[in-house]
Amino acid sequence: MTATGGAWHPGSYLRFAGERARPFVELVARVAAEAPRSVVDLGCGEGSLTASLAQRWPQARVTGVDSSPEMLAAASAAASERVAFELGDVADWAPREPVDVLVSNAVLHWVPGHPEVMGRWAAALPPGGWLAVQVPGNFRAPTHALLADLCCSPVWADRLADVAPSPDTVLEPTGYAEVLTGAGLAADVWEATYLHVLRGPDPVLAWVRSTVLRPVLARLDDDAGARFTDAYAAALRAAYPARPDGTTLLPFRRIFAVGNRPT
C-alpha cells in the first residue's frame, strides 16, 4: 500500500480479506502471459495475494513492493525461494530489468498523478509484457461523499478539508484505456460493482476504517477521532441501513485495466 496518514494495520485490512481478494483474482485472470520470468506486485500489502502469483506462474520470480513496514512485516510469512518482498514507494518505482507481468491492485488511487505513473509503467513493458491495474471506482458513493462532507463541514474543515476524498480521485474506464493505448498497449478495460453482504455492528464503518478513513483519523487525537467517527458512523447507518436479518449491503464499484504490448 502507498498512502499518507498513519500506519497500515494488516489485521484490520484483512477483516474483509475474502471480499478484497476477489477483484485481484479476477484482474489476474485476464492476464494471458503463459510463462513469465519476472512478475512484480506493486502495493503488495500483506503478501498473501502476491504469493498466489507464484502458484499461477510456477517459473516466475515474484517480487512484492510496498511502502508500509507493517505490511511488509506481515508479508515476510509469505516469502519463499521464488517470492521476495521489498520496501519501496510505487510512485517512484521503476523496473531495474524487464518485467513480464506488472500487477497493481487497489493501490494507484493513493498516488497523486497516478495516470502518469501508470503510463510510465506501461511504457517500460517489454514486447509481450503485461500490465494489470485495479482501482476502486466508488469515490462518488455515500461512503466517500459523506466522509468528504463531514471533513469539509464547519466543525472539521480547518483540520480535515485537505484530506477529504475527492470524487475525481480515479479516472473513468475510458481514461485508463487511453493511458494503455497511448503507451502502445492493447487494452482490456472493464468495471464491476460487487454487492458485499456485511455483518456485525457498523460494518460499513469497519470496512472503511482501514482504507479511506485512515488518513482522516491520523490527523486527530483520540477524543476528536472518536467524535468524528461517531458522526460518520451515524451517517453511514442512514445511508446503508441494516436489513431485517441483521446484514448490511455495500455496493462497491471497481475499475480494471489490463494492457499487453504486442510481440
Rank of each mutant, 00 (worst) to 15 (best):
W121A: 13
D168S: 14
D168P: 01
L171F: 02
N105Q: 14
E172G: 09
W121I: 12
V170L: 00
C151L: 05
W156K: 04
L147P: 07
A141Y: 13
V103R: 12
H144C: 11
P167L: 00
H109I: 09
L108I: 06
N138T: 11
A161E: 12
V111D: 13
T169P: 01
L160D: 01
V103I: 15
P115F: 01
R159L: 14
Q134H: 11
R120D: 03
P167G: 02
R120P: 02
A123L: 13
A161H: 08
P154N: 06
A106C: 13
H114S: 08
A164Y: 00
V135P: 06
V111K: 07
A123G: 08
P115Y: 03
L147V: 09
R120A: 11
A164C: 02
D149E: 15
E116A: 14
P136A: 02
E116G: 08
M118E: 14
W121P: 00
A148H: 04
R120S: 09
V117T: 14
H144R: 06
V163N: 05
G137H: 08
G175P: 02
W156G: 03
E116N: 09
P142D: 05
D158Y: 09
R159Y: 01
T143C: 08
T143V: 14
G113D: 12
L108P: 08
V170W: 02
E116C: 01
D162F: 07
D158H: 15
R120N: 04
C152Q: 15
P142V: 12
D168V: 10
D162N: 12
H109C: 05
C151T: 02
P142H: 05
G119F: 03
V163Q: 07
V135K: 10
V170N: 01
P126T: 07
C152L: 13
R159M: 09
P112W: 04
G128Q: 11
F139S: 04
A124L: 05
H144P: 00
L146W: 01
D149M: 10
L171W: 01
P173R: 07
S153V: 03
L146I: 03
P115L: 02
T169R: 14
G128V: 06
H144D: 12
D149V: 00
V163W: 05
A145Y: 06
T169I: 04
D162L: 11
P165D: 07
V117K: 02
P142K: 03
G113H: 10
T174Q: 13
P127D: 10
M118I: 11
P115E: 00
L147A: 01
D168K: 08
